[in-house]
């Protein structure tokens, strides 16, 4: 199993929007490598002829019909939000990207 490098940790931290100090980066790298050891163990299993598996249950094609049901009252939708106004969520402004 190849070692997780510091650059990889930095990349993943960036994707997760986490600011890590040099010590934290190194600690996370060691911890990730310990986790990778478990995968190394799993890799010893014979998986010949088994496709990639994303679901543990052998089930496909679960649908709902196109029917309208009840929504929640808007006040309930925003009730757990740290900040809201007139049933809008209110958040610190963010860059319009997509």
């Amino acid at each position: 199993m190849p070692e997780v490098t510091l650059d990889e940790v930095r990349h993943v931290a960036e994707l997760a929007r986490m600011a890590l100090s040099d010590e934290e980066l190194e600690r996370v790298r060691r911890e990730l490598n310990r986790i990778m050891d478990y995968f190394a163990e799993l890799q010893q299993l014979d998986t010949e002829g088994i496709g990639d598996t994303s679901h543990a249950i052998p089930m496909t094609d679960v649908y709902r019909q196109d029917e309208i049901g009840d929504s929640l009252p808007a006040a309930k939708i925003v009730q757990n939000a740290p900040d809201s106004i007139e049933n809008f969520f209110r958040v610190p402004t963010f860059m319009e990207e997509e």
Binding site: D70, S71, L72, P73, A74, V78, E86, N87, F88
Partner: peptide, 9 residues
């Protein structure tokens, strides 16, 4: 519609 009125969990 009114904001967040057509929403559910």
């Amino acid at each position: 519609s009114e904001p967040n009125s057509n929403c559910c969990p």
